[in-house]
Design a protein around this nucleic acid. Structure first.
Lengths: 234, 234
DNA sequence: TCGTCAATTTACCAAATGGTAAAAAACGCG
DNA sequence: CGCGTTTTTTACCATTTGGTAAATTGACGA
């Protein structure tokens, strides 16, 4: 029973320290990206090494399926050294997710009112598919998180994704109202773009079984362009 | 070091026993669905309880994110009692996956040469969407497994899914050759049907953030029917 | 109703895992 | 170069977790 108590106390102290913003005497490296967090060359390099390794591991096995040892090995660092740079497994994951969200939003942000509506949307499909091809690990990391109910991402979804989707859905609706594309529910349209493009990254294992010949992306691009073109042409 | 050795020996003995097909003296319940495995009323009931609980837990947290204790609690049984019915966590998971595969294949199996091609395909979309709505846990269990690279399912994918997809892709191609639907790559068509329908189950957490109003499925059904109708109409 | 086999519980264990403490090593600046 | 600071390593620890052994209870047919 004493062991339990000691742990509880230690944990409480740690939480306290966190709340007070008082870092450990050694290793102020883990203070997150708040104000100006001047990072040394070594810190920059190693944080990147760790995040790269974590992306590899988390995207392949999910959060709970990944271990610090795996990440450490992949990064070529020792486990305690990883804890020196990040407060723990969870913080690495959250950092990755936060970074990812911006990258993920980017293609949709580029959907602009200027230009021909159909071309704009098809270009968006294209960007999304390119993204799935270029960053399959990021796509799977994201998919994993959402599949588990977005436990560490719900706030971000609400704060960053929702406003953007609201904005772009309104834009698409305005195109519809102007009779420039066929009438469809904008949000379902967006969902179908996400689903079809990300499928090639997230379900790669299945796709590879069913279409063994390498290079599915050219065919996918042609198929999706045709699909959305036909659907949206007035 | 001796501890390690003992474990190794114990493990080896267990593997041996498995290979030889010699079950434990007590509990022949875990012999899998081979020949006639007459199961008592209690066995039938408890295996079902366990599989139901495991579906709930595995679909929510993934394989590695789930614990036997969670499954036991959910099933209302004790952990050792669970091990009495299944050889271990892995066997529960595999059993679930195998069962699931049949259910999952069913809607595609119903795609038949008779009838109007467009109606056949739209009915397939409908069945898939109904399935996502009625069995979201199954959909997520499957998605989880594929996301992780299908480690426990690759053989099944190859043996059951691939032949079926080959067959139905050929059927769709024959419809195209006969000029009865618009020409599209049959496999990409199938992928897009899977992706768009399962999206509503697998990414439910995200969908719920972006479309707070309950009952997205009616809208999804209308949208998807329109989408595939427009794409496939000659 | 009684004995036997099936089912369940109790009490464990070893390994894996996230994390820590403290000493050693490397860095870099005056 | 010398010395304080940062970074890394070594040696641990507590908890969690999958799984087991053995004793106990329960079901059910002769």
């Amino acid at each position: 029973m004493p062991a339990l108590k000691i742990t509880a106390v230690r944990k409480a102290m740690k939480d306290e320290a966190k709340r007070a913003g008082a870092g450990k005497p050694v290793g102020r490296a883990q203070t997150k990206a708040q104000g100006g967090v001047k990072r040394s060359r070594i810190q920059t390099r190693n944080r990147k090494l760790i995040l790269d390794a974590a992306l590899e591991v988390f995207s392949a096995h999910g959060f709970r399926g990944s271990t610090l040892d795996q990440i450490a090995t992949e990064a070529g660092l020792s486990k305690p050294n990883i804890i020196y740079y990040f407060d723990g497994k969870e913080e690495i994951h959250v950092t990755l997710l936060n970074q990812l969200m911006e990258t993920w939003l980017d293609p949709l942000e580029q959907l602009k009112p200027a230009g021909e509506p159909l071309d704009e949307i098809l270009a968006y499909v294209r960007r999304k598919l390119d993204m799935a091809q270029a960053y399959p690990r990021e796509s799977r990391l994201f998919a994993n998180e959402i599949l588990q109910g977005a436990p560490r991402m719900a706030p971000h979804l609400e704060a960053r994704l929702k406003p953007l989707v609201d904005e772009k859905a309104a834009l698409i609706q305005s195109w519809i109202d102007a009779g420039r594309i066929a009438p469809v529910e904008p949000r379902h349209l967006i969902f179908s773009i996400w689903a079809t493009t990300q499928h090639y990254a997230d379900f790669e294992a299945q796709v590879n079984v069913l279409m063994p010949e390498g290079g599915i992306f050219p065919g996918a691009a042609a198929y999706l362009e045709m699909m959305f073109r036909r659907m949206l042409t007035v």
